[in-house]
Amino acid sequence: MLIAVCVKQIPDPASPGALDPTTRTLDRSGKLIMDDSDSYGVELGLRLAEAAGGGEVVLVSMAPRSETGGLRTALAMGAARAVLVSDPALSGSDALSTAKVLAAALRRVGADLVLAATESTDGYTGTVPAQVAELLGLPSVTFAKSIALEGPEVVVQRQTEAGYDEVRCPLPALVTVTAGVVDPRYPSFKGIMAAKSKPVDVLSLADLGLGPEVVGGAAAGQELVEVRDAEARAGGEVVVDDGSAYEQIVEFLERVKVI
């Protein structure tokens, strides 16, 4: 059982984001970390490989400057190796470009099951996984809250507005994982040490046979025309509770006529 997990390396969400004023793309010049949203897919991938009685988890990522900081975190959790696509021409890629790059890398991996987060924390476009599936000609199940392997099929509980659907899908397939559905393991000291020597295969666009006319900033079919400050919403009264603040809340609710 070969399981590929798509991992995005993003600027630390704890520090405020910014757009590069000239290129109007997200500033990724600082250190990149693994998107927390991806830790659930890595954890589920590891558990499925263990449950299958032997299997391997391979990470697939696209990032500038051959960045591996976030990949090392997932390798320390237990993934066996990583494939990283890094190329200066990829700056300014839209989601479709990103999907084409990941699909090309995944074709080389040839996994039975591809896992990804439902959306990234920084871009949150939420379309890359299903675009990858379409490019690879794979069925996909998005918004999984649980995943099990049963013979040649994957069985997924898929989130819905009303609850969840149980979905069965033949392998190979792509499944996206909703955050919070599993407790991601913390890398052990041994895992962190082992991660340092695990293989990370760094590929350029040329290695994948993709040209800048197909992917990257030059091929982008959309453009940002303006970024401006939103209308600020003014704050109102702030009171410190002295044991009777609940009465003020009741009065407020009466005033706006919801009670």
């Binding site: 599936a133 379409e134 000609g137 794979l138 069925p139 996909s140 199940v141 509980q157 898929r158 819905t160 009303a162 609850g163 969840y164 659907d165 149980e166 979905v167 069965r168 899908c169 033949p170 397939a173």
Partner: peptide
């Protein structure tokens, strides 16, 4: 590509 199917709804 369209082989994912819902077997039950909860």
């Amino acid at each position: 590509t369209g082989a994912a199917r819902v077997v039950s709804r909860h």
